[in-house]
Design a protein around this nucleic acid. Sequence first.
DNA 1: ACAGTGATATGAGAAATCTCATATCACTGG
DNA 2: CCAGTGATATGAGATTTCTCATATCACTGT
Lengths: 221, 221
Amino acid sequence: MERITSPDLIRNTAEYSGFFDYLPYDALSYAQLHRFDANEFILSEGQIPDYFYLVAEGQAKAYLTHSNGKVSLVNFLYAPCFIGEMELLNAQQKAVALQAMIPVTCIALPMQQCRKSLLQNPVFLRELCIYLSKKADRNSRIYTHNIAYPLENRLARFIQITVHNEIYSERHTEASEYLGVTYRHLLYVIASFVQRGILQKTNFGYKIINHEALKQLASQN
Amino acid sequence: MERITSPDLIRNTAEYSGFFDYLPYDALSYAQLHRFDANEFILSEGQIPDYFYLVAEGQAKAYLTHSNGKVSLVNFLYAPCFIGEMELLNAQQKAVALQAMIPVTCIALPMQQCRKSLLQNPVFLRELCIYLSKKADRNSRIYTHNIAYPLENRLARFIQITVHNEIYSERHTEASEYLGVTYRHLLYVIASFVQRGILQKTNFGYKIINHEALKQLASQN
DNA sequence: ACAGTGATATGAGAAATCTCATATCACTGG
DNA sequence: CCAGTGATATGAGATTTCTCATATCACTGT
């Protein structure tokens, strides 16, 4: 983790990410930038964070470990988002692990110094409420969809969400974790999509050939 | 739905439920009580609520309809909780349907008159943040558990959560909806529990006979 | 009393998903 | 260059879960 304390850089980042509009001025005066490399752990599981993070750039994945030792991917976090809000609110549960998937840049606010100011600021609290309510809603819908549909529909949807330049290139290991199925089963369904002329394997991923069929599968929601 | 406007009754309810401590006084002056009978719809799907509800008593279930017409149970709501927070925050997504499972009593705050006051009150906003963050966390853990474990573990856990006086008596229709499995499959696993001496069928539900075995199954998390 | 409706219960075959095994490829560090 | 590691890919059998069908029970309203 790299720490940056240059006020100009912090301010630029805050403005660029949109966080500047609702951060109290005195909280911002304590801010640092924390940069994490890809694959670095932003937080390990159960760790109590010293900083409230506003994720300005990057994405991460959240893990939790079940009591039988099995590790599950909970979800992906995409900037702009928050990390540590439960601890900020003194409402902590056992923290999940967070691992950067690509380089991640956070505006880091030390909790001790900033908690009071943040928790008395209605502008900030409203934004936090909006973020949390959307997060809760989105997760509920994802969860409900996952329970209701077989993998082929869920994968189609996942492909639509993650496709870039017509190419689906997520790591199967991560996709299977996220979709809650075995690697083998994911591969089986992908092979089925290829056999059905929906996807075509290329050197750098899978190209979507039949958008309509994919859309049909994805829209079973 | 029954409306009550008696200030004494409203105040008593607010105090009893704990909501009184963080409702702005001026919001409370607009409050009503709304009472819903069991099975009554508190909100239908997609309905934009006129009131922000603080659920003081009772429980409800939340449904959403997928694009293929399939209806899924999203989760159960237990008092004390909120209804309509996304609309209050002007962050509405398509609303889920909410149906009372038992009689439900809500403190009803008209959004138009109360929004401004509520959204400027740090005490209220903090409570809302805490509620939303716990809700998001709890849902994520439930979702992750559901994806990671087969039905027998999930059912064991569900039984532990809902058992009353040693008796599990949830309606199979609701349990199967909630657990995201077919009725038949739920019945199959329950029959398996009975055959294994974990549960015993009685006239009014299933009695837990082997607590240790149930605990073992439930704690695979 | 009876029809209608929702809840409960079982059997059987089909389909989705898991588990295990095996192999190849790509990248990294020594 | 090579060993180690993680990612990708396939086959096959086992297990979990779904679908369909059927029947009975309990309750409600006419």
